[in-house]
Structures are given as structure tokens and as C-alpha cells.
């Protein structure tokens, strides 16, 4: 899923402090699971903003809601008849949701309430780690199911580098060396021959480098 992190409340206050009415819109998708922008976080933020306005002596309206997904039109359309009541929306969805709201409600400022960080997994309750960079051309079959693009700090195709030490990355002792993990996994799988085969320069055109991406599945189109 997409992992996000709530923006510091002072940053959000700076965005909305002069407004009279604000809607805090959560998203029931990824950001709910990573506890950054679901209904719960929307309620907490809205409550905090109400208290902020209240103690500033301002009579501002702050409501909260949460949409099933902010990355699908039918769900964001649910705001169509409410949006006029608000000066702005603070969306707690990932960057995709924020932009989709902004596209639909072109005259309404839509502010991001979270920082969208990466595609990752839940390590344990309250801890999420990165796994995928969405390069558009998956090589996991050749790297023991561990992605060197997401998990090597230099996204090397033929690691580990000389800075790797005892399975840790040179940038931090907290960070596992992706290529060390790949080596160990390939060994477990009896595929160490893969490790010694040089990987050619990658085609990055399928990644963000090739420009904004689009996928069409014709059979699904109406």
C-alpha cells in the first residue's frame, strides 16, 4: 500500500488559519491502514483545528468526513453537494487523492494533510517500511524477491557496494543492505549463479523517468 505520514499540525494551521470553514477529508484506503489519514485521523485533526480556532477567538467551522477512496471518481463525487459549504478542504489522502479532489473541485483550494512517502508494508503495528519504487518493469524474479531499486540506497543493479558492512547499509546502521538480503535469499533458493551474472543497464523509461505514466486495460474499458 501507499504509506503516508501526517503533516505537522502547525504546517496545516498555517494553511487554513485565515479560513472560515474547512473540511478535513480522510480516505478509507491505504492511509487508513497506515494510520495517517483515515476517519480517525480526520477526527483528531478536525478536533485540534476546532480547538485552535476556538482559542484564537475565531468562529470557524471545521467538519470531518472520510471517503471510501479519494482516487476513484464515484467516491469523491460524494462531496459534490457539500463542497460549497467550505472555503477549503484538507485532504488526508495520498498525493493522488489530493490531486483528484483538486481536479474535480477546480475552484476550491485542496490542501494536503499528509506527506505521501512510499509503497510499503506494515512491519508491525505502527511501523512501515518501503518495498517498491513502481519502476514499471519488475525484476524481482531475478533478485530473489527483494528489490534492489527500493532497498539499495544507490539502487544498484549489481551490489552490494563496498560500503555494505555486516548486512547494513553505509548510510545507516538501521538500514539493511538490500543486496546483502538479496545474496542471502538467492543462497537460500540455491540461485547464487544469478548473483554472479551481471545485470545490464535498466530501462528506466517505464519508471517515472519516462514521464507521467498511464495504463490502459482495454478489456476493462467501457
Amino acid at each position: 500500500m501507499i504509506i503516508a505520514k501526517p503533516k505537522p499540525i502547525e504546517e496545516i494551521i498555517e494553511l487554513v488559519k485565515d479560513l472560515k470553514s474547512v473540511l478535513v477529508a480522510g480516505c478509507d484506503g491505504c492511509v487508513t491502514v497506515c494510520e495517517a489519514g483515515g476517519m480517525k485521523e480526520a477526527q483528531v485533526l478536525a478536533s485540534a483545528l476546532r480547538m485552535y480556532f476556538r482559542q484564537q477567538g475565531k468562529d470557524a467551522r471545521v467538519d470531518e468526513t472520510s471517503l471510501t477512496r479519494q482516487c476513484d471518481r464515484p467516491y469523491i463525487a460524494q462531496l459534490d453537494d457539500q463542497i460549497e459549504k467550505y472555503d477549503a478542504v484538507v485532504s488526508l489522502a495520498c498525493g493522488a487523492g489530493v490531486q483528484f479532489l483538486a481536479e474535480r473541485f477546480s475552484k476550491k483550494p485542496i490542501f494536503p494533510g499528509v506527506n505521501t512517502c512510499f509503497i510499503g508494508v506494515t512491519e508491525q503495528k505502527g511501523e512501515w517500511t518501503e518495498r517498491c519504487q513502481a519502476c514499471g518493469d519488475c525484476i524481482l524474479a531475478t533478485t530473489g524477491g527483494i528489490c534492489p531499486i527500493a532497498r539499495c540506497s544507490k539502487r544498484m543493479a549489481n551490489g552490494p557496494c563496498g560500503g555494505s558492512s555486516s548486512g547494513k547499509c553505509e548510510i545507516s546502521k538501521e538500514t539493511a543492505c538490500g543486496w546483502h538480503l538479496i545474496y542471502e535469499r538467492l543462497k537460500e533458493l540455491g540461485q547464487l549463479d544469478r548473483f554472479e551474472r551481471p545485470n545490464d543497464p535498466k530501462n528506466w523509461a517505464t519508471s517515472r523517468d519516462g514521464g507521467p505514466r498511464k495504463i490502459i486495460k482495454e478489456v476493462s474499458q467501457v
Binding site: 505537522p8 499540525i9 502547525e10 494551521i13 483528531v44 485540534a48 480547538m51 485552535y52 482559542q55
Partner: peptide
């Protein structure tokens, strides 16, 4: 932390 940041 939140209460500190919003001035309460």
C-alpha cells in the same frame, strides 16, 4: 504534543 502545538 497536539495541545502544545495548537496553543492549548
Amino acid at each position: 504534543e497536539i495541545l502544545d502545538k495548537i496553543g492549548v
